[in-house]
Computed example of a mutant assay.
Amino acid sequence: MSETRTFEADETARGERVDRWLTAQLAPLTRTRVKAMIEGGAMSVNGAVHTDPSAKLKGGEAIVVTPPPVEDPEPQPEDIALDVLFEDAHLIVLDKPAGLVVHPAAGNWTGTLVNALLHHCAGSLSGIGGVARPGIVHRLDKDTSGVMVVAKTDEAHQGLTQLWQAHDVERAYLAVCHGSPRPSVGTIELPLRRAAGDKRKQAVARWDDEGAREAITHFRRLEGYGAGRAKLPGETVASLVECRLETGRTHQIRVHMAHVGHPLVGDQTYGRSGLAGLRPEDEPAERALKTVAGFKRQALHAAVLGFEHPVTGEDLRFETAPPGDFRALTEALSAL
């Protein structure tokens, strides 16, 4: 509940405690929550603020409830295992698993990477990102795995932010997409903005669109799958692609690849189901189709992250292999 609500206590309410009566009107709020709201001054009776939850109603009262704005809970440390690749006094680099949300937000107030970092770093994280995003310089989508760096000090946070703004960071991703990009090596330079009508999605925009932001993705095909079993001779049903980012917009690779006709396998937002063009004529094809059908996240892994340490000046570069589900997907496709 967040909006103001108005009620009239009729004669049947006479003699009932106001907190008990109001709880019935505000279900599913608990009586404890309603009592706290009353004591906090969120209720008025006949135009006057009323803070006694035990007061008895006389019947005929006009009751207005104006709850205080809901504050996002401050993230708390949680003992969640982390795969740490590098750590010093200034920053920490880790291999984020798919399924782990980076920072708390609506629907995910606990169990995030930030909660894990607060425990691991004993509260030693840069405060520049705010209470909900301490130390977060960049992020990976929940269902994207791979290398991330987090700042432990404000100095490191500022330095890393400058590197990102200058596009002076090496970032390479592995992705499995539908079909085969042609040409096999190229650059997608299309601005992005929030999709109309759905702020959770991104869309390709025109440069003069409000909110349009530059987005540049370089790609090259590493391997093609299924040409021998495609419905059209010589066609490739899926490909392993390396994508390198100049910019780091939300969902950039996913939107760019989908826009050019090669959405990522498993992408529940921008992708498509099945393997278009594959003939299910034998066991390898059936296994590939089953594996793709069971892959319920975007097939995207942040494989390489390289940058100059913002404090020591050391050149750092980290590379990780895709996780097991990603490898199982490519193995099933390689058998085609």
Rank of each mutant, 00 (worst) to 15 (best):
S2G: 12
A9V: 15
T12W: 10
E16N: 03
V18G: 10
D19F: 11
W21G: 05
Q25R: 08
L26M: 13
P28K: 01
R31K: 12
R33Y: 00
A36Y: 05
V45S: 08
G47V: 07
A48F: 10
H50W: 05
D52M: 09
D52P: 06
K56L: 14
G59K: 11
V65T: 00
V65Y: 12
V65F: 09
T66Q: 13
P67Y: 04
P75N: 09
Q76Y: 07
L82E: 00
L82H: 03
I92Y: 05
I92H: 03
D95K: 00
P97L: 07
A98S: 15
A98T: 08
N108W: 00
T112W: 04
N115S: 07
N115A: 03
H119L: 08
G123K: 06
S124Q: 14
L125F: 02
G127E: 15
G129F: 06
G130E: 09
R133Y: 12
P134T: 13
L140C: 03
D143H: 03
K152N: 14
K152H: 13
A156T: 04
H157I: 09
G159Y: 02
G159N: 11
L160V: 02
A166M: 05
D168H: 00
E170Y: 15
Y173C: 10
P181H: 12
S184F: 08
V185D: 14
L190H: 11
L192N: 02
V204Y: 01
W207S: 13
W207I: 04
W207M: 06
G211T: 08
T217W: 03
G224V: 10
G228L: 13
R229N: 15
G234D: 09
V241K: 01
R244A: 12
E246S: 15
H256C: 10
M257G: 02
M257N: 08
V265P: 00
T269P: 02
G271R: 01
S273W: 04
G277P: 11
L278R: 06
A285E: 02
L289C: 06
K290R: 15
K290C: 11
T291C: 14
A293V: 01
F295S: 07
L300F: 11
V304D: 01
H309E: 04
H309C: 10
V311W: 11
L316N: 09
F318N: 07
T320I: 13
D325I: 08
F326E: 09
A332P: 02
S334P: 01
A335F: 10
A335R: 05
